[in-house]
Amino acid sequence: MFAFTIRRLIQMVVVLWAVSVIVFLMMTFTGDPVFMVVPIDATQGEIDQARRILGLDRPMIVQYGIFLSGLLQGDFGLSYVFRQPAFDLILERLPATMEMVVVAMVIATVLAIPLGVYAGANPGKPLSRLIMSGSLLGVSLPGFWVGMMLIWVLAVEFRIFPSSGRGDIGTVLGVETSLATASGWHHIILPAFTLSVGTLAILLRMTRAGMMEVTRQDYMKFARAKGVSRRGVLYGHGLRNALIPVVTIFGLQLGDLIAFATITETIFAWPGMGKLLIDSIYRADRPVIVVYLMLVALIFVVINFMIDVLYTFIDPRITVK
């Protein structure tokens, strides 16, 4: 277990390093950042000077070295637009994105698992078919469009929910979050639900597939014969074993939610880091894009690592090599 952990940690570092190279190369070969900082009417001399100050006149490998040492120190440079450290800008907006992702994940899980267990345990029943058709529709929907239609019906026509913003923000355990206030909850429901649709459908389908596989096993019949209630068998014996593939997907879905939060935040004007990323792409605000990508890459490798470790707890048959 210890050797496994160390190997995975080294792997994580390699992946992050690879990402840093790719991000650096993409940023270097697409457009010249010097034009983001000099005024439009700058003379050639001024442009050359700016290039020198930014270090863009040096060899590529030296530039990468500077870039990498900046990354390691958490120094990503100033945002071209806000003239503030790009890292702080992203970090400020991280809680807003995370609270939306977490609420979306909770909505998806709470709805998907019971529905998936039902559909898997009762295949062929009309309700199961309805659930499955619904979930197939769920993976076929463009998430952003669902959000827009929810805004149209529930915010514009009926005015039940607000269409944008984060609401009042309270502090819980030192973290500023809108989950601490009623108005915050009122604001988060629509965007979080919008974000959860795709994940809900996928988790549901995975749970159902796992359940169908598991219900055929002998230990299920045995537990039933032993006198365990039907419900107890389904959730105690069945779900636990059906969950293994679901856990893998869970991690990937968490990543997808963070990625798709960029769109959901844009629609609902949610002040998270996803919206900042999209705004920064429009404004070619390179330092902010770099911070976002590196931070998200870090989050992803950590999630993947935790999933791998979690495996061994859920299914003791899986031994790490």
């Binding site: 990543g255 990625a259 798709f260 992803f300």
Partner: peptide
Amino acid sequence: SFPSMLIALFLMSA
């Protein structure tokens, strides 16, 4: 280990 959407978004922004 990265969502397709995010990779595509990053490439398109470049």
